[in-house]
């Protein structure tokens, strides 16, 4: 392996680091402060998204900086946590009437009906979610199918930032996921246990032999 240091351009700063470093590690190794826009460092939180252009490439890509290795001449700009451009506040317990569910979802996210089908959300999604399809299904009222599409969403908000119609797709996706358990899911074993607890049928024995420490301590 080549051990010559590599220089990249990060937001106008020249950053020199050892090969095999991720973009974030390189910034740190070069002595720069970088404490915002870093999260799990494991590729699941979406904090460290960046736009890069490799040397001699015309392609500009969106990547996660914690898992993208540096290459000589690479240009990098971090995409900071941008303020939301639109906001769709709701309280989950205000969704009460299942007959009104679809219209209430649409009232909460009125822009969703204006989707212009640009596909920008799909190309921005680091998880490869069919965001646009999910939005369209939600508008049609296929809430279950829409929710399933957003199952692996990490809420990085990239689709919300890119959406030219201010739909907030990932938040719509989360709402349609939330309403189902909130209103409908009542698992049998959980209900049974809660009833037992309510009736005081489960007592507690601190001094049960199995809880004893004597032979262990």
């Amino acid at each position: 392996m080549d051990h010559e240091p590599i220089t990249i351009d990060v937001e106008g700063r020249s950053v020199t680091a050892s090969p095999g470093r991720s973009i974030i590690e390189a910034v740190w190794e070069a002595g720069h402060v970088h404490v915002q826009g870093v999260g799990c460092l494991g590729g699941v939180c979406g904090s460290c998204r960046a736009i890069i252009r490799r040397a001699d490439s015309t392609e500009v890509k969106m990547v996660l900086a914690c898992e993208t290795l540096i290459e000589a001449g690479m240009q990098v700009t971090f995409v900071p946590f941008l303020e939301r451009l639109s906001d769709h506040p709701y309280q989950i317990d205000s969704f009460k009437d299942t007959w009104q569910l679809v219209s209430q979802v649409n009232q909460t996210f009125p822009e969703a009906a204006h989707c212009r089908h640009c596909g920008g959300c799909d190309s921005a999604c680091p998880k490869g979610i069919k965001v646009e399809r999910g939005v369209n299904l939600a508008v049609e009222g296929q809430l279950g199918a829409a929710g399933d599409i957003f199952e692996t969403c990490i809420m990085c908000n990239l689709c919300s930032h890119i959406c030219p119609e201010f739909i907030d797709p990932n938040h719509l996706g989360l709402l349609v996921r939330r309403v189902v358990p909130s209103l409908v899911v009542r698992p049998f074993n959980l209900m049974q246990r809660l009833n037992q607890l309510e009736r005081g049928e489960l007592y507690f024995d601190y001094e049960a032999p199995e809880a004893s420490t004597e032979e262990r301590d």
């Binding site: 989950i92 909130s182 698992p187 049998f188």
Partner: peptide, 26 residues
Amino acid sequence: GPDVVRWLIQLGMQFDQESEDPFASL
């Protein structure tokens, strides 16, 4: 524990269940 799970479900968290049935056991 059980109350925590109820609270999370009411907030809209999904858990794996034994079937698609909303009343299916966790």
